[in-house]
Amino acid sequence: MNKILYALNGTGSGHITRARELIPYLKKEYEVDILISGCNYIINTKLDIKYRFKGFTFVINDNGKVSYLKSFFYNNIIRFVIDLFRFNIKKYDLVISDFEPISSWSSKLRGVRCIQLSHQASFLSNKIPRTEKKDKLAEFFMNWYSPCEEYIGFHFKEYDKNILGPLLRSKIINAEPKIENYYVVYLWNYNTNYILEVLSKLDQYHFKIFDFNTKEKQNINNCEILPTGDDTFFNAILNCKGVVCGAGFELPAEVLYLKKRLYVIPIGNQYEQACNAEALIRIGIDSYEKLDYNHLKSWLKNDSNSTQDLDISNPKHVIKSINDFMRK
């Protein structure tokens, strides 16, 4: 039986939920070890992790924007290089990297076959929506952060031959959503006090704010502050009226699939999220560059909903693509 290393970036919830869906299928055909770098504050991996690394983490400044300078000094580049060369990648027949740099670079330097399986991989195609001004530095970074010889990208639409629709959690696909009179707010890059300052002015609406720094539930005016947790967050999304969140990929895709209202605020200086926001705008989703009272109030008053139908991926189709690559 061929041996596969499945390596994922642990900083994003979407990388984890995708691994949860795919790995049981992979284990039916291959011997699979799991590597993770970085940590997540909202969900438990629920995976049998064999290798853990610190990875590379972006640092957010007080304005809710990515600070490249702080990120450079926060991350131990020397430790990253040592981990890269010490890791025994040669014992694997194939490496699957979900935007995980140690496995990708180790594969590239040691001549091990590697396939990129991520939303970020879709940026290798020129056909996906982008901002009006292409950020060449950010494009270069995404291309070389986790380089692989082949790729399968995920996006809101199948923009190119190597790009599939979102691979959603089975619990989302099988869910029976309801509409209760509250909005979920998940803006982890913003200070909760600032979020409260803005949302408290919108006192005719009720908000559930998720904050990974909060240990127990708090009620302040029209806002409920909740600690992050997989089941708590899932149930809140399932029964809400709408979601205000960053312009990532997996969470907006789940919200769209559940037919909830969606309002996205891309993280500042984060090119990938700016491009995701552009893609969502093109299919009728509202977005703004920052958390702004007037703009958010306008969206809430509009009370319209997107009826977008997503072309979601099936895990079996993804496994078939991996098998085809193995047979090359």
Rank of each mutant, 00 (worst) to 15 (best):
L310E: 01
R327I: 12
T57K: 09
V112E: 04
N2D: 11
V185S: 04
I36M: 15
Q218Y: 12
S67T: 06
L168R: 00
L199N: 05
D230K: 06
R86S: 15
E150N: 11
K108Q: 13
Q273F: 04
D303Q: 13
P252V: 00
E216I: 04
I267N: 00
Y68T: 03
M326C: 14
L35W: 03
I36D: 02
I60V: 13
I220W: 07
E197F: 10
T11Q: 07
L226E: 04
P147I: 03
L202P: 10
N61E: 11
C275E: 06
L124V: 07
Y263W: 07
S37Y: 08
N162T: 04
I49C: 08
I319L: 14
L196F: 06
S304R: 12
I4A: 06
D160T: 02
D93A: 07
K215V: 00
N235S: 10
T214K: 11
F154H: 03
E31Q: 14
R18D: 08
I89K: 03
T45P: 01
L251A: 03
L187Q: 04
Y68W: 13
K178V: 05
L226I: 13
E224C: 15
N143L: 12
I152W: 03
K241P: 06
F99V: 05
I43L: 12
E197L: 07
F87C: 08
F72M: 09
E254P: 00
K297Q: 14
N88L: 06
S97H: 05
I49P: 02
F156M: 11
A277L: 11
H295T: 10
K65V: 01
E224Y: 06
I172H: 01
